[in-house]
Every structure is written in C-alpha cells, then in structure tokens.
Design a protein around this nucleic acid. Sequence first.
DNA 1: TGGTTTATCCTGTTATGACAAGTTCGGAAG
DNA 2: CTTCCGAACTTGTCATAACAGGATAAACCA
Lengths: 258, 258
Amino acid sequence: MKNSHPNGLAVSSPVPLYNQLRELLRARILDGTYVPTSRMPSEYELCERFGVSRITVRQALNDLQKEGLIFKIHGKGTFVAKPKVYQNISSLQGLAESLAHQGYEVINQVRSIEYVAATPEVAVRLAIESGAVIAEIQRVRLINREPVSLEITYVAEKIGRQLEKADLITRDIFLILENDLNIALGHANLAIDAILADRDLAQALRTEENTPVMRIERLTHTDKGAPLDFEYLYYRGDAFQYRLRIDRQRAAQRREIP
Amino acid sequence: MKNSHPNGLAVSSPVPLYNQLRELLRARILDGTYVPTSRMPSEYELCERFGVSRITVRQALNDLQKEGLIFKIHGKGTFVAKPKVYQNISSLQGLAESLAHQGYEVINQVRSIEYVAATPEVAVRLAIESGAVIAEIQRVRLINREPVSLEITYVAEKIGRQLEKADLITRDIFLILENDLNIALGHANLAIDAILADRDLAQALRTEENTPVMRIERLTHTDKGAPLDFEYLYYRGDAFQYRLRIDRQRAAQRREIP
DNA sequence: TGGTTTATCCTGTTATGACAAGTTCGGAAG
DNA sequence: CTTCCGAACTTGTCATAACAGGATAAACCA
C-alpha cells in the first residue's frame, strides 16, 4: 500500500497527514535541521514541499506551537523556539496545580484587562513613575469549577496591548513574553504573606469576605535585570494545603551537555 | 459599529468569530445551560444557529476540548465533560513537572506503542492471565529538551487501540480514559523505589547505564475497583530533586457546594 | 538625503465543499 | 422474531479560495 507522497508523507495511511507532518517537523527541530530562533519555511512553502494544503500545514504547526517548540509572528513567519527558557525563576506556584496536572479540570479565565494608573506600590516594583498608565490583567484559575487562585498581573501598557492579542487562556504568559515578544526573562523575586479577603477578592475566589488568603508577590525581571512583570497571586486559604518544597537548585544546570 | 450577527456574534469586531463563539459556549457550560454528560448541539446545528462555517465552530470546540470542558466521540457527538474528575488518586507526579508548568518547555514523546504478552508482574497487577496480549505505551517526557522521565503504561489491548487513536501528546491520558472512553476512575496504589538503569532505560533517559533511577509503580483502578492502568514511571535520579509533599487530602472534598 | 508610499510576503480568519469513518436505528430479509 | 444491512447523522480530515492585516524592503517623491 503506502501510496507514498512525493515528499515522504504516506497518503493512504491510517495516520492523518497533519500528524505525519507534525512528527516530521518535530524530528527536524529536535535533530537540529531547523535551528532555534531561525525562521522555518513559510506555510506556503511547506504546502508545496509536501504537497498538502495550507489547512493541513497549519494544523501541524499549531500543535507544535502549543507544545512550545515553535512560535509564530504575524506577518513575519514561523520560528523555532529557543530550547532554554527562563533560567532563574524561583519556582513556586504549582501549589494546587501540581495536583491539577494530574488530570483535574483546570480552567483559566481572564477576568479583566484594564489600563490603569500605577499605584505607588506597583510603580516602585516596576521602576516607573507613580500614576503612569500600565496594564492590569486579572485571571482566575478554576480547578473542578471552583476558583482557587486570582492572578493580577501588572506590565507596561505596551506589553499589555500585545498580551491582549495573544491567547492568554491556553498559552503560558511567560511563553508569550519570551517567544512572541522576544523578551528574555531573568530572575524573579518572591514574597509570601497572608491577608484577609476584601469584597472584590472574595467575589473572585467565590469565598467569604475576611477569610484568610495567601498572597504571593512575584516580580519577574528580564535577563538584563529590568523589572518586567509584577504579579499578585491570591490563593484561597483552603486550597493552599499542598506544599511544594524545592530542595536544591534546578538539576539541569549542573548537567551541561559537552 | 458592531454589525451584529443574527445570533449574538459581532462580525466586524476585532475579536475573531471562533473566539467569541468559544466564550459564549464556555459561559453556557459553566452556567449550566449545557448540562454535564449531555450532548451539545452538533457542529452543523451550531453552524446554522450562529451563522458561521463549520471550520469556525470546530476551532471553538477544539479549544474547549483542550481545556477539558467538553469531549467528542467520533460518530456520536460532542459532550459536556463531568466537572468532578477522579476523586482518590493519590497524587504524586508533578515532581519536576511542577516547575515545568511554570513555563519550562515540556515535550511528551510517544516512544512506542506495542502489543506484547503480559509479564507475570504486570499480569498480577492487572488481574489477567500471564501471557495475555496487552498494550504497552512508552512515553518520554522532555524538559528543556532533556529527558527526565520514561513512562511505561500497560492497559488492556482494547483500551490501547483506542488510546492509540487519541492525542496522547497534548491530552492527558486520564482525561481520555474518563471522557472519551467513558471509564470512571477510582483509587490508585503507589510504590516507589530506586533501581539502576539498564541499557534501554539509559538510552531513553539519555543517561549512563547503571546510574540510579527512581521508579514509581502506579496502579489505577476504575471506580468499581477493577485494575485498569498499570504504569512504571522512571525518573532520572538527578531530576528527582523536587519533592512534592501532600499534607492533607484534597481540599475540595471537604468543601461541598450545598 | 530623508521620509513616504507601495509592492510583496507572511500569518490570521473564514467560507464552501467533499469524502472518510464511526454510531444508531429502522426496515428488509431470513 | 431475529439478523443483517443500509440510510441518516455524527465527527475527522483535507482541498481550494478569498480577504484581512502585520512586517519589510524596494521604489518613489520631496
């Protein structure tokens, strides 16, 4: 059988074309045929080269993008992602999420995207003048339909405009910053405390006013050290029963490939 | 402006149609208009009802499926997923993954899907006769292009055939079992030990032979208590430096919604 | 020379259409 | 009455086509 295509794809195979194409492209990325940060062939080129339609090519590319292997820039092209992502972000999060990845239903909701004047607290963190316009993104994370955390992200207005266009629901915000906006991330500072929920926070987390809430502040910098992204992460107290302890630094860092 | 569509979608809006449709459907699922486990309108019905093409409908539905809100069955229809997922799976995993979700590049590779005779060890776990044909799925998890774990999954041949057709790379295996195959999951048993990597394992994890490797056995049962899915999870020793400690049972279980 | 416009290439969105393949159910044949 | 088969409906895959809109560089104008 096989009915082989001019360029290596089997037409009358039980495995779909976009699937074959995805595996083929993934292999070429992993073996170095397509070098990180370099542009991949355009969608039309891939169409011709493999004798398939653009809808098939896009299906394969979208899957690869969701994996984080490639990223696209509207009007420019499709690029191979850099293998090394942020190096020094002290990790927290993954609190309830670590369970979540097990298969629990996780939903991210964008509660609001607004452009507001920076409060003094935020302005100081982002090293801008108080009162300047910045983007405020509020996202709620639901696990099994119950809200567990509210994330309020502050970034420069310009970056906010670009994040607004990206897919904040299914794609990681850091992936968008690094790949789509081409901003290299550096270290992050963390602070943790507990507060009482005010009315708005209680509403977002669907809990009672004045119940205890864990608050995490995270300030993420670019690799140049400039403050980039300031976040408040509010976790419902009763969802904060998992503890993630990181005993050492990241393993991969001490295991360089010669 | 707005140029409103007959059924609530704004045509000349800057936000894409499939995006509007996705939000609209998500809202209807969350507010109970579409009841869990019930069938949603077919793709063609949604086309007519909202005056859009099927490609737009499918784009919206696929996003919702990736979120886990709905699932599809080829030939039957699209269904609303049950909000409660497995109740009692003692969670482990998320070891290096908890960091991973932070934004590190995570790639799942299907190393092989084969149908083999059950070894005595596996047969005992799955409560079948030794030598019966079962499916063996080997998957490798890469973080930042470096392999950190090898997962070997054993399930009944019939289930393996169905998993083979599903999207094992981007979708969670438990989600597929619960939704697509309509198998309710129950509890799981875990065992952890350390072994030395043999040649094959060393190759998969791209490490040296005879280096220490953490091994986790996990036997997942259906809600009826029947053994369903037996897995070996091999973690590279030097990737096993994060510990996830679960101090109590799941929070949500003690917080019933009246 | 310097700024602007335009042509061109790219990805994003959407429509239409077709066939494949799984599911269900009723009617025909035994 | 049972069995088998096909019609009808579903999602899965894929092609062709068109236009929108961002990016870029060459061509053009001041």
